[in-house]
Design a protein around this nucleic acid. Structure first.
Length: 211
DNA sequence: CCATTAAGATACT
DNA sequence: AGTATCTTAATGG
């Protein structure tokens, strides 16, 4: 059996649940940029990430996507689960942040498991807790830091994550992540370049010495 | 070349 | 900080 799936299953206490999960779950691989859940679609099954990462976006009609949050290993999308339970269409779009392995669980089963298996319910609650804590963190960041500071933090974090000083991304993408507009990011980046902190070129930001 | 699109610039809120 | 709009530059066919 898939190693990542096995690892995930180990947190579920009930053997019957593990077995059902393994039988029902469809393991799928998605590539960077691939859309996993389309905005407005009915949710028939929920994705659980085995490896890699997905990002959850809110689309605002005019084709502008705002990042809501990331889904990492072992996590699933609360919004999808909630929406599916209430038989609503998805209010968000989910896209693969990198090559990702997911297991799809039909909502029908997931709903029954909530009533049947305590460890499944516990898993769902933990997702809530984690999401809520992250939300609080974002609120704190936004209220206590200037956009320039958040941008700097973002660049540092990104370069650490990607293990490189040359970030390959557009100003527009950064703007979407930080919930602002491209012009504003371009302006701030230009200031940083003038301060010799970074070097700009198309689709690329080279980090010299942030701090 | 030309089309597309990222990024720069300016002006106004 | 954010929006609107225009201009310039890079890229890929």
């Amino acid at each position: 059996m898939n190693q990542n799936l096995t690892t995930f299953l180990s947190q579920l206490k009930e053997a019957v649940l593990r077995q059902e999960f393994a039988e029902i779950g469809q393991v799928r691989r998605v590539r960077v940029g691939e859309v996993v859940v389309q905005d407005g679609a009915y949710i028939r099954s929920i994705p659980i990430i085995l490896s890699g990462a997905l990002k959850v976006l809110q689309t605002d009609g005019e084709g502008r996507d705002r990042l809501i949050y990331y889904l990492n290993e072992g996590e699933s999308c609360i919004m999808s689960i909630l929406g599916a339970l209430n038989n609503e269409t998805s209010k968000v779009k989910v896209v693969a942040e990198r090559d990702t392995e997911i297991v799809m669980i039909p909502m029908q089963n997931a709903a029954i498991w909530v009533k049947k298996y305590p460890s499944w319910t516990e898993y769902i609650f933990k997702l809530y807790q984690k999401r809520f804590e992250e939300l609080l963190e974002v609120v704190k960041e936004v209220s206590s830091k200037s956009l320039a500071e958040r941008l700097t933090d973002f660049l540092i974090q990104k370069s650490t994550l990607d293990a490189t000083r040359s970030l390959l991304m557009t100003h527009q993408q950064i703007a979407a992540e930080l919930g602002t507009s491209r012009v504003v990011i371009s302006r701030l980046l230009k200031d940083m370049e003038n301060d010799q902190k970074i070097e700009l070129s198309r689709n690329k930001i080279k980090i010299l010495k942030l701090v």
